[in-house]
């Protein structure tokens, strides 16, 4: 049904999509780590990071509106900090609204969390919207990530559509019988749904496992035609990392 809800847009064709997954993942991870380690006062560093992401995002042809709407998942967290911190942190008061005092220190903390989380989230969304799930898992595996993780995650990716469909069917059946989902005693219905979803999933897993065994499965997937690092991939990785690093390192001279 919804075959692309995990890695939507990852099968477009663009210069960014064709970058070797290992190089792309390392570049994005490096950008995030550099961004998170930047002190909040260096606002122009964040401009550089946003600039790098904007170039990658434009080249990837993934719609901006999609990237933005996905990036909003961090908003609740930012709002939590926004509600508490500026008013409660002691320090230089920049604004008074009635009995509320907004401190400079509090605002810096809010800015720090907001800008870093938004940049990092956008970077991860660009990565997952330009790299199909199996390719990214294979890249992590080649970067010496535990094989157990990547294999379990690959199975998850293959079956999540079926299980979610199953859950949606149950939901449809439930709602067509006048379930409103309003009060806590109706949790029994949801509990039964989750229980039968688990049993069905587990049975499906056993069937799949037996079918795979009978076809010679030995605990991991055979791999062929792994992409190799080309010059362009190395250049991309070097460019992104160096651009971000040079902004970050130039702080040391200020």
């Amino acid at each position: 049904m919804k075959h692309d809800f995990i890695d939507r847009y990852s099968r477009l064709e663009s210069p960014v999509h064709s970058i070797e997954p290992r190089a792309k993942a390392l570049a994005i991870f490096a950008l995030i780590v550099i961004c998170v380690s930047t002190p909040p006062q260096a606002w122009w560093c964040f401009l550089v990071y946003v600039g790098i992401l904007a170039v990658i995002a434009t080249a990837s042809r993934v719609p901006f509106s999609y990237l933005l709407s996905r990036a909003l998942v961090v908003l609740p967290f930012i709002l939590t900090v926004a509600v508490f911190t500026p008013f409660t942190k002691s320090g230089e008061i920049v604004l008074r609204v009635g009995f509320l005092k907004i401190s400079k220190e509090g605002l810096i903390i809010l800015w720090n969390a907001a800008v870093k989380s938004l940049i990092s989230v956008t970077a991860l969304i660009i990565l997952s919207s330009t790299t199909p799930f199996p390719d990214l898992m294979r890249a992590l595996e080649r970067l010496k990530f535990p094989k157990f993780f990547t294999t379990v995650a690959s199975f998850m990716y293959r079956y999540v559509f079926i299980i979610v469909d199953e859950a949606e069917r149950m939901k449809l059946a439930r709602d067509s019988r006048n379930f409103r989902g309003r009060w806590i005693w109706q949790a029994k219905t949801v509990g039964h749904m989750i229980a039968s979803l688990f049993i069905r999933s587990h049975m499906r897993g056993e069937r799949v496992y037996q079918a795979m065994c009978s076809r010679g499965f030995e605990g991991s997937f055979p791999r062929w035609n792994d992409p190799e690092m080309r010059l362009a991939d190395v250049l991309f990785l070097a460019l992104v990392t160096l651009a971000a690093l040079s902004a970050r390192v130039s702080l040391l001279w200020h």
Binding site: F155, A187, G205
Partner: peptide
């Protein structure tokens, strides 16, 4: 170790189960 498919599908189950929101109180 070979039972990895079962674990993978259970991971998919946790994903789907997290989508089934449960009611807390009044909406």
């Amino acid at each position: 170790e070979k039972k990895i498919p079962v674990l993978g599908i259970t991971a998919a189950f946790i994903f789907a189960a997290q989508m089934l929101n449960f009611p807390v109180a009044g909406g």
